[in-house]
């Protein structure tokens, strides 16, 4: 009985570690290219996160199942074949069912193959553990990756464009924030004069903004990390 509880606990641990403690893109800094490149809008961020997670889960299951069959000497090519086939399947499905999203993500869908998170998990985890643990690990890592993409893309889209754009999924109009006009300006009328109060920080939505946002997020993480460490010493 206690054995079962222990096992459940360890499964839960495999799941939760990927979300905060070993968050792949914000703590371990793996898979940076998609993290920065596709986070121009929340829709793209979520789409990328789900696509990468799907590949991660499938390849983790497959590699964990095949771990005794794949010869040790050629394991890396075998993993690459497995991962690349799942990526191709995901790419074809995206092109068929969410064509606009596939078009916006462009080459970053095929580039999931070289996302270090997936090969890293295969090499460090799935080829040693059983299927259930591998699934939990992949779910956690995938969720962590998706959440960090969501965080970055939220900052970039809301402050950059002042709207939320889900048009890639077939939604007709962009969601504008209530007080802000369609040109992403916040205009306040004061004594009959129109004052432009805020205009979207467009640079956040462009390439340089991605670097600024992730730099600031990492600094905030470092700040909290050092604070907790100080507490432990005290």
């Amino acid at each position: 009985m206690s054995n079962m509880i222990k096992q459940e606990n360890s499964l839960l641990k495999e799941f939760t570690k990927g979300i905060i403690k070993e968050n792949p893109s914000l703590i371990i800094l793996l898979g940076l290219c998609p993290t920065l490149a596709v986070t121009t809008s929340i829709a793209n961020g979520i789409g990328m996160g789900i696509a990468a997670s799907a590949v991660l889960i499938c390849s983790n299951i497959m590699i964990s199942l095949l771990k005794n069959y794949i010869p040790e000497q050629v394991r890396i090519p075998a993993y690459i074949v497995v991962i690349a086939s799942f990526v191709t399947i995901v790419e074809m499905l995206m092109k068929a069912y969410v064509p606009l999203l596939a078009k916006t993500l462009g080459i970053f869908v095929p580039l999931i193959v070289v996302n270090c998170i997936i090969l890293g998990r295969a090499e460090a985890f799935a080829n040693k553990k059983n299927v259930l643990e591998s699934i939990m690990d992949a779910l956690g890592m995938g969720l962590g990756f998706t959440l960090s993409l969501l965080l970055i893309s939220m900052i970039r889209e809301i402050f950059g464009y002042c709207w939320i754009d889900f048009r890639n999924y077939g939604v007709k109009e962009v969601l504008t924030l209530p007080v802000i006009t369609k040109d992403s300006e916040l205009i306040i009328e004061l004594f009959g004069k129109k004052i432009e109060f805020y205009k979207g920080i467009f640079v956040l939505a462009m390439a340089p903004g991605a670097f600024f946002v992730i730099g600031l997020i990492l600094a905030v993480i470092n700040y909290f990390k050092s604070k907790f460490e100080d507490k432990e010493i005290l």
């Binding site: 095949l66 069959y69 794949i70 010869p71 000497q73 050629v74 090519p77 075998a78 074949v81 497995v82 690349a84 086939s85």
Partner: peptide, 14 residues
């Protein structure tokens, strides 16, 4: 055997 297994994996993937 190594190359046979790798070929089988490739074949299934394809």
């Amino acid at each position: 055997i190594i190359s046979l297994r790798l070929t089988i994996i490739c074949f299934i993937a394809v």
